[in-house]
Design a protein around this nucleic acid. Structure first.
Lengths: 232, 232
DNA sequence: GATTATCATTGACTTAAGTCAACCACAGAA
DNA sequence: TTCTGTGGTTGACTTAAGTCAATGATAATC
């Protein structure tokens, strides 16, 4: 870990959704307690049960947050890219990290140590409200995930994910899967074999056309129905 | 809705985990914006998609937060009793409620309107930190729920729930299911038939003894194993 | 006290999705 | 180049858990 107090970090932090609109003076203080750390692809950032002495922001790269069962099946909770904060739960709720974090690509992260950060939050209502908004947003996302896992079948979850990617990428009816299919299966709460079969099925049913990691939506309405109803 | 500014409400709010330790002056302000509202058993408090103009605290009674699929299957997210806050997500993240809330018993709730409350949070760092802790705790709980739904089978989830009740009720190896079995099935992400079969199975395997809603733990170690491994 | 509902249990059956295994395509290393 | 590892696909099979239906047991209402 290398402390980094240069001006560019202050600027970058101020553009982050968590810290947007904060006063220069507070941003400099924040920058003063921040450490920039690097992780190679596949490196573990923290594991479930580790004590949480601070949290992270993705500066460059991509990070996955996941749980794993005793027999090795993985469930991805989040994929975080530049600007996203993660690992905040133990900062505010105490106790240890509830899940694992590894770098999916070579990544640079900003680490914010707990105690200094909490003091900053206490002194800065706008920051507190931004954090409350971020955690609430996360809760909303988890609610959707529980809904999907419990009440929708794999094709429904897949359809919802394709629509989500389509909206995010805003490239009409064309979209790119942003993860390997193995990782996507883990994000959707299934296994690669099942994902492969369901992608084929959506294509066979005339909803999409698949070219590797590129997908074209052919019948958007059909996908929306599938995502809402949750099954064929 | 009836505004209620009496002293007892101030006192009650001050004993709530969210507002514990707040200055009298702020508690009185809080009390000033609070409304006490009553809901009969089975009454809807809000529905998914409703705009969230504030949030609630359970004063008396019991509330369930749940989602429902188009064909009527229900997934319970939380059961909240006295002192617990709920419905905060739209207050901080904007948008509408992500799930439904109904009263499980005749209940009295404290409603806190959004705008006044946000102003109070902004002026009160200790309150902000309490809220951050509450939301983080909620995230931790959702993480466990996703883990259970995705990586554990029904017997494992049931075992974990029985151990949770046993710890909460602190009555040795004896515990009471606090919900009807239909509701418990919905909380565990399954259906009553399956829950019934799995309870029988745990009894047949010598892990528990069932007498209606009373359960005695016979083989605690076996239950712990089952809860951790997630399946037989 | 009789009559509806609601809840719980059990059996027979179906089905979504997981397991296991084989195979292919491709990329990076030796 | 050839090897080795990783990721993806497909087929045959198994299985956990859901569906449907019948029956009992309470509990709530008239």
């Amino acid at each position: 870990m290398i402390a980094n107090k240069d001006k560019s970090l202050v600027k970058w932090l101020g553009e982050t959704s968590l810290f947007v609109g904060m006063e220069e003076q507070h941003l400099r203080k924040l920058s003063g307690i921040a450490m920039v750390v690097s992780y190679k692809r596949r490196a573990t950032i923290f594991s479930e049960g580790d004590p949480g002495n601070g949290f992270y922001l993705v500066k460059e790269g991509k990070v996955k947050i996941f749980m794993i069962s005793p027999d090795g099946k993985e469930q991805i909770l989040h994929i975080f890219g530049p600007g996203a904060p993660f690992g905040e739960v133990p900062v505010f709720a105490g106790q240890s990290f509830p899940a694992h974090a590894v770098a999916l690509e070579n990544s640079r992260l900003v680490f914010l140590p707990r105690d200094d950060f909490v003091a900053l939050v206490a002194a800065n209502p706008a920051l507190a409200l931004n954090l409350l908004a971020a955690l609430s947003q996360r809760l909303r996302q988890f609610t959707k995930m529980i809904d999907a896992l419990s009440l929708k079948e794999v094709p429904g979850r897949l359809a919802a994910h394709l629509l989500y990617l389509s909206e995010k990428q805003a490239a009409g009816d064309h979209l790119q899967l942003e993860l390997s299919k193995t990782q996507l299966a883990s994000l959707l709460g299934t296994i690669p074999e099942t994902l492969s079969r369901m992608l084929s099925k959506l294509q066979r049913e005339g909803l999409i056309v698949i070219k590797g990691a590129s997908i074209s939506i052919v019948d958007r309405e059909g996908l929306v129905d599938l995502a809402e109803i949750g099954k064929f």
